[in-house]
Design a binder for these strands. Structure first.
Lengths: 352, 352
DNA sequence: AACACTTCGGAAAGCGCTCTCCAACCATCC
DNA sequence: GGATGGTTGGAGAGCGCTTTCCGAAGTGTT
């Protein structure tokens, strides 16, 4: 069936508010009021208008509406990657990682109910950043959720300066007056430390992520502090870059330097997978010879063998809270800048 | 610094084209032409306008522009889930699955370069479908990429009827004149069959997905046909629902019915993971006692132990092609309806 | 019955932009 | 020198909607 079958035809174009008004025998203003439920309108006219809406098959034009209301019913999900080239393979990995999807899922769980849609934006170059901020100031979207990847990202600051409602997933690398949700990474690391020690490990090392990523450095400092409390004033740490391969390499290095190692905390599950491979290749059994604790409780953790003991962050909940925070700020821009920190939990499986 | 620092102030509001024109000493029309690079404009005026743009910090308002050009520079990514309740836990799983992210990554790789952004939409109820189609007809987005989950989804048909440019990822369950990209699921299943037989398996079964999902039924029929060619006129098949748990359960059932089983093709990696667990619990070694072949080559496949032999689909490439197809149709709506089918490949790892 | 007070619908002014006309201008040609 | 053709810039009409501002009713009070 064609789209207008059964409707009062109005030529080729889509029915507009004008058409509805004409059919209902009222003015455009009245039709608008009825449709938006503004002010008391005579029940009689009210019905006439709704009938006309039905007869014409009218659907409001969001664009036109947004132009005047300055509200779009859209928030931007900005993936900020300072090194992004146009076909950065890194981005492919990023999207394929469940991290991205979990964030989207968490956001959508809140946004859907508010009837808000999510527009995905990727920015890499300074140029793209400027354009993005410009578009956002124009109300291209009502606000932005920022997934900031690089260590020194000017974007959060630019957004606050421009007065764009924005919320960060993960704390800003440098202090910026911006709303954010984050995980207590240090507490999570401490949980891992306590567990390793509790399981009787004596020679404990850590495989960390890049030093300049906040989440990563927080895990390092949290782990160091907790280990110190357990009497380990110094902990060998090897850096990786959150990939499986880097975890495997780091584990080999660690093992070479300290063959008696019997416990390792790895800053994410993917690297932990690599570490397990390295351990297996070195003839170590997990968890009997070496205890391994990961971080993230990603799907990799349950797929691993032995299944990974790891630190779980409620990423969906965090993202959902971020969405709520953003929506609140869109509503009231003068709201006090706030942050919400989530506590991670230890998930004990087989690796430690 | 405030946003207008260093700019010719124009009061509280953002600079408009009008402001630029005034500063440049030309008419709004001329300023518009310069900014959009239309027609030959006197180089002198051209420069004046660009200077004015710099001086005012002007950024075009996309909304206003879209309203008149009827082009938004946005395509919608529609996740169609007929059973979606407002807080459907299924959707959470869907987003967390790398499938979603890989599609997004593939789409973005093309869309980014075209300067097009992606707006995520989830539709479940008939009501939401109608609204979505209405919005799309209005040019809320230039087109739609549809991820259709349910078996009998009216959405594809609705979109073509409404004349909205759209492309499906995965073939439509019922024939609809709509562009789509898909995987040769049957060929992939045949690959698995050949491999299992080639490895010497004699008693082969399959764990399939829901019968009414095209991708799933194609894998079943492809597998059956290939097995028939190898002389296995009949293959026991147990249904799962693509989750790990259902794979485990299906494997147990299969094993109970046919203890001598020595090869199994599982319609996706996640269920294959579950199947491996069930096999291990039943004291079967993989691949020595039972060979296992999965499907998808998801991250679960490499994380599994033993690592999964599986069928790889180039999902990113497929999504990218989908984006290209859509962009082409947006450009030329009369384009012939076309589909692109990708060939899967066998990835041999340790499980078979 | 005259007054103030409230309620309600319509006219019209935008929101910021594009693009069609049309007038003005320049160069060219007979 | 006037007619011709080709550029180029400006005026202004929209795109579809919301919302302010008013005037016209309707309600209640003295």
């Amino acid at each position: 069936m064609t789209a207008t079958r059964g409707h009062t035809p109005v030529g080729e174009r889509l029915p507009t508010l004008e058409d509805v008004a004409r059919v209902a025998g009222v003015s455009r203003a009245t039709a608008s009021r009825v449709i938006n439920g503004i002010r008391n309108v005579d029940p009689q006219l009210n019905e006439q208008v709704w009938n006309a809406v039905g007869a014409t098959g009218y659907v409001p034009n969001r664009l036109a509406r947004s132009l005047v209301t300055r509200r779009t019913g859209t928030v931007a999900l900005v993936v900020s990657d300072s090194e992004a080239h146009d076909d950065d393979p890194f981005l492919g990995r990023f999207f394929a990682d469940p991290y991205f999807g979990r964030v989207v899922g968490g956001l959508m769980s809140v946004l859907r109910q508010a009837g808000v849609q999510l527009a995905l934006q990727i920015v890499g170059t300074p140029d793209q950043r400027t354009r993005l901020v410009g578009d956002l100031r124009h109300g291209q979207a009502d606000g932005a959720v920022v997934l900031s990847l690089p260590a020194h990202d000017p974007l959060p600051r630019m957004l606050t300066d421009a007065g764009v409602p924005a919320v960060l997933i993960g704390r800003p690398p440098e202090p910026v007056p911006i709303d954010y949700v984050d995980l207590a990474n240090d507490t999570g690391a401490a949980l891992a430390a306590d567990h390793l020690v509790g399981r009787g490990a004596r020679q404990i090392a850590m495989i960390s992520g890049p030093a300049d990523v906040p989440a990563s450095s927080d895990r390092v400092s949290g782990f160091r502090r907790a280990m110190a409390r357990h009497g380990h004033g110094w902990v060998p740490i090897e850096h990786g870059n959150f990939t499986r391969e880097s975890g495997e390499a780091a584990m080999r290095t660690l093992l070479a330097a300290q063959p008696g190692l019997d416990g390792v905390f790895v800053a994410n599950d993917l690297m932990a997978l690599g570490a397990q491979t390295a351990l297996r290749n070195a003839g170590r059994r997990v968890p009997d010879d070496v205890r391994v604790v990961g971080f993230d409780d990603s799907s990799a953790a349950t797929a691993a063998s032995p299944a990974l003991t790891t630190i779980r962050h409620p990423l969906e909940d965090m993202a959902a809270e971020g969405a709520r925070l953003l929506l609140a700020r869109v509503e009231d821009r003068t709201m006090r800048v706030s942050s919400v920190i989530y506590e991670p939990t230890l998930v004990v499986r087989d690796s430690a």
